[in-house]
């Protein structure tokens, strides 16, 4: 189980000291899948890095608590994280090529994962690697195991990355925009694979994405981020069908619908705020058609108003 409480991430004072993540809380049961949705500057990727112990410590400072399976990781150092990553927490990033070593075959890299964490005979590790690739939907794992990354398509590479990330059955998978660099038709397959792995291992999944539509097939819950805060969180169907925060609704309506014409598309005015900007009230208020005086003055707290459905808005939909 993952529990995050009052997570703040700030730039170092010498770099301005402004917060990038502003008091985020999150609880995830084993096997539960949540999507973190937001635009640039929302802090969504910074949360993902914090969950992986990958915040650049020379640039950012973190406060709040982070526990995984009862273990307090709030003050874990780089050495601690080294053993946690791979075994307990897995990561899948946007660019699969960057996660693979170009001069080693997929098999060599996968065997390396097993070897780093246990001392089975090499032949047995290779057998595990073949099985793991088969579980990733590769029809011919014996051939794939001998391929180099440059011999594979983007979708195949991302499958190989997921094979490595989940080889040791970690309890938590953090996937940051895992499909953004892939062709649209491949995206659904990669998401399905993540769901399948999470179900097989009963591992929790945090899917970080800018695309609210792609969360449908994946997540039990959706958390919407804006300006470093969680502004709405709830069951996925409920968020998609009956979101209460105007920003969530605006995101849902932002993509052109069939029959809508450019020139007359509904727009959200302005742009997503930068982390360095300050708002006494709600950060979305300057762009919000429902905003009243109180929105510009008082920060709305994230409050559970309906069961399992919380939102931070003075004038919800």
């Amino acid at each position: 189980m993952l529990a995050v409480q009052d997570l703040w991430v700030r730039l170092k004072p010498s770099l301005g000291g402004h917060p990038i993540v502003r008091g985020v809380g999150l609880q995830l049961q084993p096997g539960e899948r949540i999507a973190i949705v937001g635009e640039s500057g929302s802090g969504k990727s910074t949360v993902a890095l914090a969950l992986l112990g990958l915040l650049p410590r020379d640039v950012m400072q973190q406060s709040g608590s982070l526990t995984l399976d009862g273990e307090d990781l709030s003050d874990a150092g780089e050495d601690d994280w080294h053993t946690i990553r791979g075994r307990k927490v897995a990561m899948v990033f946007q660019d699969p090529a960057g996660a693979l070593n170009p001069v080693l075959t997929i098999g060599e890299q996968l065997v390396e994962v097993y070897r780093a964490h246990d001392d089975r005979p090499r032949a047995e590790q290779r057998q595990l690697a073949v099985q793991q690739l088969a579980a990733m939907g590769f029809a011919d794992p014996d051939r794939i195991i001998g391929l180099y990354p440059h011999q594979m398509s983007g979708g195949m590479k991302q499958r190989a990355v997921i094979a490595m990330a989940t080889a040791l059955h970690p309890g938590l998978i953090v996937a940051d925009e895992p499909t953004t660099a892939l062709d649209p038709s491949i995206r659904a397959q990669i998401l399905a694979l993540l769901v399948q792995k999470s179900e097989a291992d009963r591992s929790s999944l945090v899917l970080v994405t800018h695309d609210l539509a792609e969360t449908v097939r994946v997540a039990h819950r959706i958390a919407v981020f804006y300006h470093g805060r969680m502004v709405e969180v709830g069951p996925a169907e409920r968020i998609l069908a009956r979101s209460r925060h105007p920003y969530t609704r605006a995101l849902l309506n932002a993509r052109p619908q069939p029959g809508q014409r450019a020139g007359e598309l509904p727009v959200i005015p302005g742009r997503p705020p930068l982390p360095s900007e300050q708002f006494p009230g709600c950060a979305f208020a300057p762009r919000c058609s429902r905003a009243g005086e109180s929105c510009h003055k008082t920060l709305p707290e994230l409050t559970e108003i309906e069961p399992n459905h919380a939102y931070a808005c003075h004038f919800p939909l």
Binding site: E39, H210, A250, L251, A254, G263, E264, I268, P272
Partner: peptide, 18 residues
């Protein structure tokens, strides 16, 4: 572009085209 900004630019490009 961010999703919440795309429609602005699409509308603009269309008005410029016309």
């Amino acid at each position: 572009l961010d999703v919440s900004v795309q429609a602005q630019v699409l509308n603009l490009l269309k008005s410029v085209q016309q």
